[in-house]
Design a binder for these strands. Sequence first.
DNA 1: AACATTACCAACCGCTTTTTG
DNA 2: TCAAAAAGCGGTTGGTAATGT
Length: 320
Amino acid sequence: MGRPPCCDKVGVKKGPWTPEEDLMLVSYVQEHGPGNWRAVPTNTGLMRCSKSCRLRWTNYLRPGIKRGNFTDQEEKLIVHLQALLGNRWAAIASYLPERTDNDIKNYWNTHLKKKLKKMQAGEGDRGEDGGAGAAAGGGGKRPSVLKGQWERRLQTDIHTARQALRDALSLEPSSAPLANLAEPQPTPPGSTTYASSAENIARLLEGWLRPGGGSGAGKGPEASGSTSTTATTQQRPQCSGEGAASASASHSSGAAANKAAQTPECSTETSKMAGSSAVAALSAPAFSMLESWLLDDGMGHGEVGLMTDVVPLGDPSEFF
DNA sequence: AACATTACCAACCGCTTTTTG
DNA sequence: TCAAAAAGCGGTTGGTAATGT
């Protein structure tokens, strides 16, 4: 029964990827497209687990990935989304198409968490862990008992959540990377061009080949500058309503978050995600200082609204 | 210059959800 | 319908570069 096993655990290589491995993976994906990862190790000869291949592709080799410093804009957006969605990095990443969930997660853990903590410390000892606290509440594992309750409740509240998110995301309509955030553009499978992945790998190799370019994949050469391949070949599956995105076979949280922000008809996952958003927002930290930071620099209208609008979604007690 | 500490990030691990035979 | 495996996600770890002593 079931499927055949994906790959042998024996003889599977671990650790940093070499340029050669990257090349093999990239050329394979260029030819066949992403997906069907279990076939990748066998077809390419890579001594890697399919899971590892997928991760390498999505986190590093995928075209359109921007590396390097996060802009203030991105930073603020992440803070907002984290407050709204909790630690659903894939969901958050779907609104920052050029960033990977891993990247965002790392950035949150290494930079933003501290930054927020500092800010909250600056305004007194209210609140615990700030966004992280919200994360623990909203992003953590929730009792499955709550699921049905969320669904029912959030089917009705979803519109409010969407509106709040839209408000937050439409603040910088002129900003190119953010411009399509409110309505994440679906990338129909097949229309995706993988040409830019060659650029990626070329850059990669260029860096490696350069003296002092570092060893292995540890510190990618791209880290120094943003590899702004404008090909927004966002591989993340999205609920576009056009049905095409289903090809990548993901109905999990990342896509679900998009659904939440876009189409209420995108099934119950939508509600779950937005539900957790509400829950996360409920445990949001004291925001006054955060607000001023977020409001600063043209994040302007609607930001506080985002925070406050979401809170009324539900009384925490109603979830328990 | 040598060592210790801190910061960062790629990759792995383990779990949950979804898909498939 | 069910079990097994794939796919996906979030948390954590390990290696390395940067910084401090």
